[in-house]
Amino acid sequence: MKCRWIALGLIVLWSVGCIAQEATRIVDQAGYTVSVPSTASRIASVYGIGTYTVYALGGEDRLALAFYVGVKTVASASDVLLRWEPRLSEILGFGDPNVEELVSLRTDLVLADASRHLDVAEQLRDLGVPVVLYRVETPEALIESVILTGQVLGPESATLASEWIADYDRVVVSISEDTASLAEAEKARVLFLGTSLSTVAGGDMYQTSLIRAAGGRSVTAELTGSWNEVNLEQILRWNPDVIVIPPYGPVQPSAILENADWQALDAVKTGRVYRMPRLVAPMDTPVPESLLGIAWLASTLYPERVRLDLAAEVAGFYEKYYRFPLTQDEIGRIAQ
């Protein structure tokens, strides 16, 4: 564990050194060497998850086009999101990125998703637009993506990146200390649902790592890949202690708590069915804000044990990384 942090620290130092030059040469998460202009001022992020990292590292003013997770139109954006990004109607994009559109916007850097945008990236490179590809589904890859974004955005962002890594580490270590005395069998068995009652998060997803970091055990850890479709019998067989619903999609806790077929589950008997709250980013996805997701889940699983002050963490994160003060009411939506 220690070794990894030292190595990451060295990468950060190295990156700070690099940024002093005109153009920064970096290796993105798909293995491409990219020459990023240090003056990149019209950035397009066509990877919703990557967009939130740009904000967390203070690069939002340089976005010329941005995709957000689950935000299709300005009309569908929440009040917090509209206040958080006043330029939303100007820069919001959605769907498949259009190469010509990206070029006509005079973007000088594109942030994209390695699992979906390899073709688009190829075309953009041919047109002389540098592309940084992300591949994020584990905590390690998240940290790597934050460092990478810091390198791309410049020295101030690189400093914020290393501060965020320290914060992430602090939250994870604090929770693991609080839950250290729990034997494996005592840990809460968590089912992470998807956007329907029969969709569950597979073992390779960030959600599984999130549950582990929060001191729980994912009952679906044995499943491979992304979202899996399962039947009620399998859920009865897992019989989770806690059910978590993601902050997007139509499922609400009442759909489970009031469903006659789900009453045999321990989570339903004890009423431990929660929908993850959301202000800006979905905290269950590999975004910087997921450190609040870990803190929220740990506080929800073990309210007696976890010492972290969730309200202070939420307020502090939004203040420091989004430069966006929250109202008490908004803080209360996450920290009840």
Partner: peptide, 8 residues
């Protein structure tokens, strides 16, 4: 929506 509706 590729995150929720499309997979369904």
């Amino acid at each position: 929506d590729p995150l929720s509706t499309l997979p369904t």
